[in-house]
């Protein structure tokens, strides 16, 4: 958990001042959104929460429509 917080803090410190200084608000907005999504996912994983496996989703979909090898 500490590693996750440190890593994401480093990303913020490294990227945000540059984007603010250059007034790239659109880039800043999407950087923040993606960073937030990445942070939440990493924190949940670090806390031991079982996240849904995307490959299982794909498998269930193709099993439902009976299309797989």
């Amino acid at each position: 958990m500490i590693i996750v917080i440190l890593a994401f803090s480093a990303m913020v410190v490294w990227q945000m001042p540059k984007l603010i200084k250059e007034r790239r608000w659109r880039e800043l907005k999407y950087f923040s959104i993606f960073l937030f999504v990445g942070f939440v996912l990493n924190v949940l994983l670090a806390m031991g929460v079982e996240l849904p496996d995307p490959t299982k989703g794909i498998q269930i979909f193709f099993d439902t429509i009976k299309l797989h090898y």
């Binding site: 999407y30 990445g38 994983l45 996240l51």
Partner: peptide, 19 residues
């Protein structure tokens, strides 16, 4: 370039929870 590190973080989570 601002997306590189957040996407890397999302990619790592996806890799860890995949199969």
């Amino acid at each position: 370039t601002p997306l590189l590190l957040p996407m890397a973080a999302i990619g790592i989570v996806t890799a860890l929870i995949a199969y």
